[in-house]
Amino acid sequence: MSRMKFYCDDYRCIDCNGCVVACKEAHEIPVGVNRRRVITINEGIEGKQKSLSVACMHCSDAPCQKVCPTDCFYIRTDGIVLHDKDKCIGCGYCLYACPFGAPQFGHEGIFGVKGVMDKCTFCAGGPDETLSENEFEHYGQNRIAEGKIPMCASMCSTKALIAGDASEVDKIYEYRTAKRGDNTSLKPYGWEAYNNGK
């Protein structure tokens, strides 16, 4: 069974923020809410500057789903983690539980209190009727239903950000690392490397 995943190649990301703008534009996201962001470290240090585009990683064992008191999250069969804004009470627990800082909260009302949660939907809409006005208003475009890949990945000029079925993403990752000369079987990467303290 396919599982949809993002992968951002920090060797290729150039901190252009094209993905951020594309996402905001496509889904008409209000000011103050960013479903995607680009983080840069060692900015300006030659050879050491690295950037990474981050959004919801659509975890298989999503902590946001575990912590939500109203059980508003659900995981589709293709692994995309979505939530029901009609159920969300904006408590923010998902933000505390998320390892990636994906949940976003805008301010609303006369007192500017926190609104309901918004996050990356992998451009797959939400629980409302597919491709309906309601769905767009609440969750943005449903590009997956139209057979397209998420807007951020489609707009990435260096193809640092790729999205799609995990097995296909994995093949691209392996191809790129092999081409760079990295032996992935000997050199752990990502969480594995972090957890091993390497």
């Binding site: 008191p69 109203t70 059980d71 029901d84 009609d86 159920k87 969300c88 009470i89 408590c91 009302g109």
Partner: peptide, 23 residues
């Protein structure tokens, strides 16, 4: 209302109550 959100199953009234909790 927040702690036992699973029983109310969320929605507008629990959300307004949550905002009221903060204010």
């Amino acid at each position: 209302n927040i702690t036992w959100g699973l029983r109310s199953e969320g929605g507008d009234i629990p959300r307004i109550l949550r905002e009221f909790h903060e204010l």
